[in-house]
Computed example of a mutant assay.
Amino acid sequence: MQPTVTPAEPSPKSTAPVNPNLLDSATTQLNSWTGQRRKVPLKLGSMFSEVFKTHSEAAAEQLFIGGTQTTTPSLATVSDSPVKPWLFARVLLIFALTIAILAGSYFLFDGEKMYISLIFMSALAVPFSLLMMFFEINTFRNISIFKVTKIFMVGGVASVLTTMVLYQLVSIQNLTVLTAILVAFIEETGKLVMIAYYVKRIQARFILNGLLIGAAIGAGFAAFETAGYAQDLGLSVLLVRSISSLGTHTLWGTINGAALVMVKGDRPLAGPMFRDGRFLRFFGLTIVLHALWDMPLPFEWVRIGLLIIVAWVTVLVLINAGLREIRTLRTGA
């Protein structure tokens, strides 16, 4: 009699679930807050692939003329392809050249009158360049550079003023773990007030619009705050704050602006939207990031590096949600 042959059992290796890495788990969780539980591939090389390519001034001007009544594209022509900003790098280069000339005038020729200009241009360079990046990422092209600049200047100063008013309600003497949380809540709330004002004023209804408005408020806050610190502490603080501004107020404002518009959609802005769980998760995240940034904890630069990464991962997930929204709107249309 022939022996009975039983099929071999599949090895545990072939059936064991694949554990996602930490980054995939993070993007999956953050993306679930936007309504889609799926990991988001982060392709920074592709996203910034246009930075080192040659672009004409005409191409730059074409970007800057968007957002007017005659240059805002229809939904059917809005691109949902992965964003590839490049103009912001040219803006940053112009700032770097200007700062180098001002620094040379100040240090080599004792040009004391250049001191204030050097402070303000240095404080402005990174936040405003990041703002230009989010201006490019807003593929709806429905907010003009004039409006963006106005939100950056007026909204940025107003958010600082709002924060100063809120600081009158509390007494903070020394920066501790608890007071860092309080500072984070006050400053993020101060910026949120102005973000909400401009979201309502210009009737923003797309996630990428919220990214841009939040970036404008956050960049203005960052620039004016850094200029104030440099005035008190000297030029040495400019380099530190310029590097750290890659992951602070501009990105935190961007996250809150996108989250607010995400829950608002095309409806009028109303109070219950600020209690929506989707918004509160992102708003709470920015408060945690801000508080951890300010806390007097060890391993400062390691902590700052990790916080910058978390902020950028969150922003990239929201950009993905904004592009997904374009496809959803087209399907609905």
Rank of each mutant, 00 (worst) to 15 (best):
M1Q: 13
T4G: 02
E9V: 09
E9W: 02
S11W: 00
S11R: 04
K13F: 12
N19L: 10
N21M: 03
N21S: 11
L23H: 01
D24W: 03
S25W: 04
T28V: 09
N31R: 13
G35V: 07
K39D: 13
P41T: 11
K43Y: 10
M47D: 01
F64A: 15
I65T: 14
I65P: 01
T68V: 02
T68P: 01
A76L: 12
D80H: 15
K84D: 00
L87K: 04
L87C: 02
A89L: 04
V91C: 05
I94P: 00
F95A: 08
L97D: 02
I99G: 05
I101E: 03
G111Y: 12
E112I: 11
Y115I: 07
L118R: 07
I119S: 05
I119D: 06
F120I: 15
M121E: 02
V126R: 03
F128T: 15
I137L: 02
I143E: 03
I143H: 03
K147D: 06
T149K: 10
M153W: 08
M153G: 13
V154H: 06
V154M: 15
T162N: 13
T162L: 05
M164I: 09
V165Y: 05
V170H: 06
N174Y: 12
N174R: 11
A180Q: 01
L182V: 13
F185R: 00
F185V: 15
M194K: 01
A196N: 03
Y198I: 09
Q203S: 15
I207F: 00
N209M: 04
I213A: 08
A219I: 12
A222P: 01
G228L: 10
G228Y: 05
A230I: 04
L233N: 09
S236R: 05
L238N: 06
R241K: 12
S245M: 00
T248N: 06
T248I: 13
H249T: 01
G257D: 10
L260F: 11
V261S: 11
G265S: 05
G265D: 04
L269S: 08
G271Q: 12
D276K: 12
G277C: 03
I287K: 00
V288N: 00
E300T: 11
W312I: 15
V313N: 00
T314I: 06
V315L: 04
G322T: 08
G322Y: 10
L323Q: 13
R324M: 11
R330S: 11
G332D: 14
